[in-house]
Every structure is written in structure tokens, then in C-alpha cells.
Write a protein that binds this DNA or RNA. Structure first.
Lengths: 167, 167
DNA sequence: AATGAAAATGGTCGAAC
DNA sequence: GTTCGACCATTTTCATT
């Protein structure tokens, strides 16, 4: 997964900024803003995607509007050495885990978990704690967002869409 | 900021799913998949945006490809009572803070911070700790992602784009 | 209320330079 | 990098149910 460095200039920077601000902006409009033809913008976007700088285009949603009203960070402590490969498998078993990473400090991993409500969150936590080599967890429930427009506040991964049914 | 409940059916769910998977999918293509005309899909997307269910469309990028190679979660402890309003102001002073929330547990807030490297991260941390009523911070550096496709792994807020210059 | 069909405008994308 | 042309998508208007 090593990406070779790829030329990236001021025009690319502006294109990426425009697409982060609105992924549906037309290449023609971006081109007009930065002084390039639509075709040139398209070729640069194609290159930015192929080189792995742009990884995709997604809609951002308010999870609460789809029934995901509860959110927490969970520190995970494992028995003995916890190989990240094995941890990643565990994480993929639980669609409510929307982000997971290994971190410095006492915990082996930090999980971001979304649930429909506190009861659902408790159920998820019990499911995670039943996994073979998880020793303990410490949860921090999110109370309110201080940057309401951050990606973490609004994004939902596709695996979590089922909750739309539950509202 | 209270959103009235709005009708949301199975077709809306599929439209949202399609746009989360690819924000640039055409209305005609979504319509063909779910049995609706492009016009009907457009009208539903317009309504989903107006009702605040869809908050926007964004490009996802690999921050590392743009020079943001360091990432951490930072617990913040304040002097005395920390009104979230005041905390939010502090957070907005530091563009490297990409997400921030109040949480249960000992800390008053949890921050997600992106920096170009460890030196930059140290500088950000010192800047945050100089803020009037911050008492202490505890940092957890992110080592590796266990769900590489999660929004937290790939998204960057526009305020952080400057780093593209630094690579 | 929500849909589809039609028409005008505007965008995409390959080919050629 | 650009222009051109064919095709496709978006958006408004209007008629239908």
C-alpha cells in the first residue's frame, strides 16, 4: 500500500478544496474558478483518484436524522499481545464500529461506536466484550459536538444504514 | 436547530445509500436502480437536503497524501466549570482540531487533531495548553487504522488544507 | 402529494491537436 | 494544456394520477 509521490500543485490543491466543499461541483465550474478547461479539470481529478489522493465522493448525513442518536469512544484492552490483524477482524464483526485504530497509551485500541440509543449501545458493548481476547473496555459517551460540521459529526458508513429503518 | 420529523421511506433510504457510496452518481442511474425517474430522484434529494438529513456532498482524501501524517486524540481538562460555548470558541482557534466533543468521564472534552508530523503536533498541543482555562491534556497518538475506509481515516476539513503546501 | 415526460440548458468525456 | 462534438445529466415546466 505504498503510494509513490505524485506531482501535486496549487491547481490540484484548489480542485481538491472545491470537491471537499461540494463533491458535486461540475468540472466546468471548478475550471472557471481556477482558469482551466473542464476537460483539464476532469483529467486532474481522474489522476488524483488513481494516485489515491482522492479516495471517493460521499454524501454526509446527520446520523440522528437516520436514527443513530448515541455515539461513544471505547478504549479496548486485550489479553496479552494483541496483533492488529486479529483486532481488525474483531472490529469488522460489529457494524456499529464506525472507526477503529490502535493508539499509544494503556489501551490497545480506540473504537468509535454509533448506536440508535443507550440500550443498543449497551448491547453492542456486551457483544464486543464477549469477543475472545478482549479483557476490558472503557467508554466515553459523546455528549455534544463542539465542531458540528466535522466529518465525525455527520458521516455514517454504509454498513450502518440499517438504522434508517428504526426511526 | 430542531428538525421536524419528515417522511422517510425505503426509496429515500436507497437514495441516501447510493449517494453515500458515491456522491456523484447521477439521478438517472439511482432512479434506474430503484425504479424512479431522474426527476423524482432529484426532487427527493432536494427534499432530503432541505430537511437536513443530507447535509452535503464531499470528497474523501487520504490526509497522508496531502502532508497530514500525524493524528491524535486529546483529552482536555479545564479549570473549574467549562461551558461548552467557551470550549467551542477555543476549538475554533486551532484549525488542526478536526473534531471536538464533550464526553462523559473525567475529561471535559475530546479533540481529534491532525498535524503534519510529530513536531507540528507538539506545537499544536503547546498552543492549546496556553489557552486560558485549559488545565491539562492527555494525548493518544493514532498508530494505525483498523478500518481504513472509515470517514475518520480519510476525511479532512477544509480549514486544514494548507498542509497540502507542506509536502 | 408525488410522479413522469418533454424541452432547454449545461456537463461529461473521448478524439484530435 | 485546448477545442470540438456526441452523448448524458440537471432542472424547469406542464400534464397526469
Amino acid at each position: 500500500m505504498v503510494h509513490r509521490p505524485v506531482p501535486f500543485d496549487e491547481l490540484d490543491r484548489k480542485i481538491v478544496a472545491a470537491l471537499i466543499a461540494n463533491a458535486r461541483t461540475s468540472f466546468a465550474e471548478i475550471g472557471a474558478d481556477i482558469g482551466l478547461s473542464a476537460t483539464a479539470v476532469k483529467r486532474r481529478v481522474d489522476r488524483l483518484r488513481e494516485s489515491g489522493i482522492i479516495t471517493g465522493f460521499t454524501a454526509t448525513v446527520r446520523p440522528a436524522a437516520l436514527g443513530w442518536r448515541t455515539e461513544a469512544y471505547v478504549e479496548v484492552y486485550c489479553e496479552g499481545a494483541a496483533p492488529p490483524r486479529r483486532l481488525a477482524e474483531v472490529v469488522r464483526n460489529h457494524p456499529e464500529i464506525t472507526a477503529a485504530m490502535t493508539v499509544t497509551g494503556g489501551a490497545d485500541a480506540l473504537l468509535h461506536v454509533r448506536a440508535t440509543d443507550v440500550e443498543h449501545f449497551e448491547e453492542v458493548l456486551e457483544r464486543i466484550r464477549t469477543e475472545p481476547f478482549i479483557r476490558k473496555t472503557i467508554s466515553y459517551m459523546v455528549l455534544s459536538h463542539l465542531l458540528p460540521d466535522s466529518p465525525e459529526a455527520g458521516a455514517a458508513r454504509p454498513a450502518a444504514e440499517g438504522a434508517a429503518d428504526l426511526r
